[in-house]
Structures are given as C-alpha cells and as structure tokens.
C-alpha cells in the first residue's frame, strides 16, 4: 500500500517525525517568546508615541518607521552576520529571537497605540481624578482596556509572525520550515516535503484565524 496521500509521503514524515516535531516546537517557541517580548516593547513604544515629550515621541516614531520600511530578511541578516563584527556573538537562536522581538514590536506598537487612542479621554480623567498617577492610570485602567479591544488584531499579527519565523531557515536554523528542507534534500523529496510544510503551516494558521474572527465578533459585542 502506498504511503502517499495529498501529495505527501507520510512514511517519510513518520520516519523523521522527531526532527519535524522539534522544528515545529522551535517555530512555536520562537513565535511565543518574540510575541511576549514584542508586545511589552510595543506597549512602551506606544506610550512613547503618545507622550507629551517631543523627544520620546520622535524616538518611537523613528523606530517604528525604520522597522516598517526595511524587509525582515535584511534585519535577520543584520543581526546574524553583522553584529559579530561589532563584538556581539549571539549565536543563531538568540539573534533571531532579538530580531523578531524588536521587528514585531514596531507593528505591535501601532496596534496598541490605536487601542489606547480608542479609549475615551474621560477614562484617563476619571483615573487621574481618583489620584492615580499617569503610570497607574495606564497600567490599571487604559492598557487593560486597550489590549482587550485590540486582542484580535494582536493575535492576528502573531499569526503573521508565526509564518514569518520560517525565514530563519535561511541562516540554517531547523525550525519547522528548516526541518522540512533538511528532510526534503536528504531524501530527494522536495515536492512531498514542501507540500507537507505547507499543510503544516495551514493546519496551525487556518483554524486559529477562524477562531480569531469569532473572538473579534465577541469583543465587538461586549463593547
């Protein structure tokens, strides 16, 4: 009986399941850690963009504009190949984590900024009238609401991030894409393994994006 189905050689997949699962785990871990760090940095940047202080505003705006204007691949290369010249030897894993975290922060920043601006000015006034400091108002009153309202968009950006992490393959990391590439070239099974890779990404992303649509509707109702 042939082990082929949907154009994938499932026997080959089974034989290499440890490598492939390890790759998937790597991709998911990289996504989760860059998201966590990216959202925290994104919050800081968003608050800077909305600050009264022009210097802070300009620094944050320049950061966002810079990273939104250069391709991700270039940033990956930059951190991986060029930083060692300046004395920072980070290794591939750390360097891609930093790359994704600071790159995605620029995108998270804009989503969070829109979220903060969607909260009425009166909420800030009410928080401050109770004696909360600016930082406390943001932390307990404004940011929780902004992040909740923007949750679907933040997660959607994370789905994009998950797909983008496949780019780390080009510097030889065995993430999900990279492990597929290895199996494909070792076994001369390009067509089968690239199809499997596509199926893998699809099976993670499609159900999640459907779930996000539902979440978006629910949040719209709560508001």
């Amino acid at each position: 009986m042939s082990s082929h189905f949907l154009g994938v050689d499932w026997q080959l997949v089974a034989d290499n399941h440890e490598l492939l699962l390890g790759g998937l785990r790597y991709s998911l871990t990289l996504t989760a850690s860059s998201m966590a760090f990216g959202i925290v940095l994104g919050c800081v940047l968003a608050l800077m963009r909305l600050a009264d202080n022009a210097l802070l505003r300009n620094i944050a705006a320049s950061y966002v504009n810079l990273f939104r204007s250069i391709p991700l691949v270039l940033v990956i290369f930059w951190f991986y190949f060029l930083l060692p010249f300046f004395g920072f030897k980070l290794g591939p894993d750390k360097s891609v984590f930093i790359t994704f975290a600071i790159f995605e922060a620029a995108y998270y920043c804009e989503i969070i900024r829109a979220g903060i601006q969607s909260i009425s000015r009166g909420q800030v006034g009410a928080a401050q009238a109770l004696g909360l400091t600016y930082a406390q108002s943001m932390r307990y009153v404004i940011l929780p609401q902004a992040l909740r309202n923007m949750l679907p968009l933040l997660l959607l950006q994370t789905l994009v991030l998950f797909q983008d992490t496949s780019l780390v393959t080009i510097i030889g990391i065995k993430d999900f894409m990279g492990s597929n590439v290895v199996v494909a070239s070792n076994n001369g099974a390009l067509k089968e393994m690239y199809t499997f890779a596509a199926l893998g990404y699809f099976c993670v992303c499609f159900p999640l994006s459907m779930a996000l649509k539902k979440l978006h509707k629910r949040i719209a109702v709560i508001r």
């Binding site: 009238a129 004696g131 009153v141 609401q145």
Partner: peptide
C-alpha cells in the same frame, strides 16, 4: 486629587 472627589457627566466607571 485623591482628596477631592469628582463625578463626571458620563460616569466614567472602568468597564
């Protein structure tokens, strides 16, 4: 401000 209470037109409870 902590010593002066304020009530707003639009209530401004934290939703």
């Amino acid at each position: 401000r902590a010593r002066v209470g304020m009530v707003f037109q639009n209530f401004e409870l934290f939703p």
